[in-house]
Computed example of a mutant assay.
Amino acid sequence: MIQEAIDQKLLINQLQFSIAHTGMIDYGMHTNMTDARSINHDGGLLEFSRRNGTTIQAWSPFQYGMFEGTFIGSDKFPELNQKLQELADKYGVSKNAIAAAWILRHPANIQVIIGTMNPEHIVDSAKGADVELTKQEWYDVYFAAGNDLP
């Protein structure tokens, strides 16, 4: 572990995380199960970060996979986009803002790295910070992305 090799406290860890890239939380939800999502692929980084006060920053918050593209507006995610639009209409924001709000609602206090040079996209997505999804809405989005609970 890098923290053991340095004197400075690690303050931030950037991890890929989005509604369509949920591996680091799937493991915790499928603990003690035998399905594919129960495999701990990240060595417990989420839990380690929470225990040690390291802030997680989510990069590629609107992407699925490593290079496939964005799930916002993608034909590969019709149910997710329908749920995002439903919540966007309810809260008066965009689907991107709801996707950001979904990450921000996680109890690990994850920060969102928007990663764009487009000022309008930054302002639009940042409105997610003003949306507090209910727990049910959070899970509804999680399920709409094709995720499940055992």
Rank of each mutant, 00 (worst) to 15 (best):
residue 109 N to Q: 15
residue 65 G to F: 04
residue 64 Y to L: 01
residue 106 H to M: 10
residue 93 V to D: 03
residue 106 H to R: 09
residue 61 P to L: 06
residue 85 Q to G: 03
residue 75 D to Y: 04
residue 88 A to V: 05
residue 93 V to Y: 01
residue 98 I to N: 01
residue 117 M to T: 13
residue 96 N to W: 01
residue 82 Q to A: 15
residue 63 Q to I: 00
residue 91 Y to G: 03
residue 70 T to I: 00
residue 81 N to E: 02
residue 94 S to T: 13
residue 69 G to V: 09
residue 69 G to T: 11
residue 112 V to E: 03
residue 87 L to M: 08
residue 108 A to E: 12
residue 78 P to M: 04
residue 81 N to K: 11
residue 84 L to T: 02
residue 82 Q to R: 15
residue 65 G to H: 03
residue 99 A to C: 08
residue 81 N to R: 12
residue 84 L to K: 05
residue 67 F to S: 12
residue 80 L to R: 01
residue 122 I to R: 12
residue 100 A to P: 09
residue 60 S to G: 15
residue 73 G to I: 08
residue 98 I to K: 09
residue 106 H to I: 08
residue 82 Q to H: 12
residue 72 I to P: 02
residue 125 S to T: 15
residue 117 M to Y: 10
residue 86 E to Y: 08
residue 105 R to N: 14
residue 60 S to N: 11
residue 128 G to I: 10
residue 78 P to I: 07
residue 126 A to E: 12
residue 84 L to A: 03
residue 112 V to Q: 07
residue 69 G to L: 08
residue 82 Q to I: 06
residue 81 N to V: 01
residue 127 K to M: 15
residue 99 A to P: 08
residue 97 A to F: 04
residue 97 A to P: 03
residue 119 P to D: 11
residue 126 A to T: 15
residue 120 E to C: 07
residue 61 P to I: 03
residue 115 G to H: 09
residue 74 S to V: 01
residue 81 N to C: 05
residue 86 E to N: 11
residue 83 K to L: 00
residue 64 Y to P: 00
residue 67 F to I: 08
residue 105 R to I: 00
residue 84 L to G: 04
residue 82 Q to C: 06
residue 106 H to K: 11
residue 61 P to M: 04
residue 69 G to D: 04
residue 123 V to S: 14
residue 124 D to A: 12
residue 94 S to M: 02
residue 81 N to M: 03
residue 84 L to E: 03
residue 71 F to G: 00
residue 88 A to L: 06
residue 93 V to R: 01
